[in-house]
């Protein structure tokens, strides 16, 4: 069947309308995200300060993540040490294991693993919590009772993740190094003092400092993404699930992008 020129024109017009609507929506979403971030920086400095809520969130986000972080960090230390051994053994360089593992853990593994666990556990928690508050009108209820919900819910959570992810990263670092020590001690008989002397000889202040800065950025991203997705969720319970899910996916994606970018900056500084 032949398509008449008018029909073809109509189809083309419809397609171009759909594309232009999608482009509009993309830029509107970008503007929305930008405004959300700007609002955060405006509200964070203005009183009243939600000290109690920030501390409560730090506890929820930080302390309650400790079991998972401990287990993951410990296993990563053991596994990484185990996997690195054969390669170094080929060159008879197993004595370099502590230095190699410490560099890997401090520079990359600890910040990245903490951020990914944070995105999974904390990002989804924030997304789902705020999403459910949004669809059940709890956020509106807060607003009509003369409480600024953005400050109470968003600012406190983003600050908590920004503070707690670097703290959790330092903890992951120590636990992973300890796991690696147990492995190297069992296999090579390296003493505690020798191991940690080699570990600290291998790393510099810049290594730790850059990891802390990176983790702070990851923490901000995880909190902001979770809050944005939850705060703007819609479509009832389906929206809550979507908010939780897309909080995790988006935060993980952004963490990897930030890791790549920060790697370039740190390499240049080094």
């Amino acid at each position: 069947m032949e398509v008449s020129p008018e029909n073809e024109k109509r189809v083309r017009t419809r397609r171009s309308r759909v594309i232009s609507r999608k482009i509009d929506r993309f830029f509107l979403a970008l503007y929305d995200i930008f405004s959300f971030n700007v609002r955060f920086f405006k509200e964070v400095f203005l009183p009243p300060y939600e000290g109690k809520e920030i501390i409560r969130q730090c506890y929820e986000i930080g302390v309650r993540s400790l079991p998972l972080i401990s287990l993951t960090g410990f296993i990563i230390g053991i596994v990484f040490m185990n996997q690195s051994r054969p390669s170094l053994a080929e060159f008879g360089a197993t004595s370099w294991l502590p230095s190699l593992v410490s560099l890997a853990i401090v520079r990359a593994l600890a910040p990245l693993v903490t951020a990914l666990i944070g995105a999974g556990r904390i990002g989804s928690m924030i997304g789902a919590e705020l999403g459910s508050m949004k669809v059940t009108e709890q956020i509106d209820a807060m607003e009509v009772s003369a409480t600024n919900p953005f400050k109470f819910l968003v600012v406190s959570r983003v600050l908590a993740t920004t503070f707690m992810i670097p703290a959790l990263m330092m903890y992951t670092m120590l636990v992973a190094l300890l796991g690696a020590y147990l492995n190297v001690s069992a296999n090579e008989g390296t003493s505690f003092v020798t191991y940690f002397t080699q570990v600290f000889d291998a790393i510099t202040f810049l290594d730790i400092f850059s990891s802390v800065i990176k983790s702070t950025l990851f923490g901000y991203t995880i909190g902001m993404v979770g809050c944005y997705k939850g705060y703007n969720s819609s479509k009832g319970t389906e929206g809550v699930g979507k908010a939780a899910n897309s909080s995790v996916v988006t935060a993980m994606f952004l963490v990897f992008i930030e890791e790549l970018l920060s790697l370039q900056v740190i390499t240049a500084l080094r």
Binding site: E137, D140, A141, V144
Partner: peptide, 11 residues
Amino acid sequence: FSFQNSALYDS
């Protein structure tokens, strides 16, 4: 303001 779903804070 009394909301349709009560809007009590779940936590």
